[in-house]
Computed example of a mutant assay.
Amino acid sequence: MKIIRSREFTASRAWGALEIANMGGITTRLHWTDQPYRWHVNDGQEVFAVLDGRVEMRYRDAGEDKSVVLETGDVFYASPGTAHVAHPIGNARVLVVEAQSSQ
């Protein structure tokens, strides 16, 4: 059993993570960041939930670049093959559920 107070979590570097669970190759990790990630495509599906802060999620849909600002409580689902990159607006804490091979 674990109780995690996400607002108290910080990391020594951007996108530092605390692994919460690995359920048969599907990981749930809490990330802290204040810097953008990088454009990437996951090995499978990804669920990205903003627990604290705001994040501009940039993604490609049908070859067109788009973006949406995710507020605390918002969830972004990346289907297989969806290129995306997260740009935090200040500090952010996000919960990411994805295949272990995507990391």
Rank of each mutant, 00 (worst) to 15 (best):
G53P: 08
L18D: 08
G16L: 10
V55H: 09
L51I: 01
E56G: 08
A86W: 02
P80M: 10
I89W: 10
P36C: 09
M57N: 05
D74Q: 07
R58V: 04
E46Y: 06
A92H: 01
E8W: 07
Y59V: 12
L70M: 12
K2A: 15
R5M: 12
V97G: 00
V94C: 05
R13I: 11
S102Y: 00
D74W: 03
S101P: 08
G63C: 01
M1L: 13
R58W: 00
V41K: 08
E98P: 05
D34G: 03
V69I: 14
V94Y: 03
Y37W: 09
K2E: 15
V41N: 06
Q35A: 10
L70K: 01
D43M: 06
R38E: 12
I4V: 15
V75H: 07
G44A: 08
K66S: 04
S101A: 14
Q45A: 09
I3N: 00
W32R: 05
T82H: 00
L18G: 09
I4Q: 03
R5S: 14
D34A: 07
E19V: 15
R5F: 07
S67W: 00
R29K: 15
I4L: 13
F9L: 13
F48W: 07
R60Y: 01
N91E: 14
G25R: 03
R54T: 12
W32H: 12
R13S: 13
V55R: 09
M1C: 14
I26C: 11
A49S: 11
V47W: 00
L70F: 01
E56C: 11
E71Y: 08
F9T: 10
W32N: 09
M23C: 13
N22T: 07
F76N: 06
R93N: 09
V85R: 03
M1Y: 14
L95D: 05
M57D: 06
R7G: 14
D34K: 08
L30M: 12
S12K: 02
V94W: 00
G63T: 01
D65V: 05
L30V: 09
A14S: 13
G81Q: 03
I4E: 13
D74K: 04
A78K: 00
V69R: 02
A99P: 06
V94Q: 06
A86F: 02
S79F: 02
R7M: 15
N42E: 14
A99G: 05
M57V: 14
A17S: 15
D74E: 08
N42H: 13
P36H: 02
T82F: 04
V85H: 00
A86Q: 03
A11Q: 11
A62V: 08
S67E: 07
G25W: 04
E64T: 00
A86D: 07
D61Y: 02
S67N: 08
G53N: 03
T72A: 13
I20C: 11
S101M: 10
E46D: 05
A92R: 00
D34C: 08
M23F: 11
R58T: 04
A49E: 08
R5I: 15
S6C: 14
H40E: 09
Q45E: 12
T10A: 15
T72M: 09
S79R: 01
V94H: 03
A62K: 02
K66V: 07
R93H: 06
H87W: 00
E8D: 15
P80Q: 02
H84V: 09
E98T: 04
S101K: 11
W32T: 13
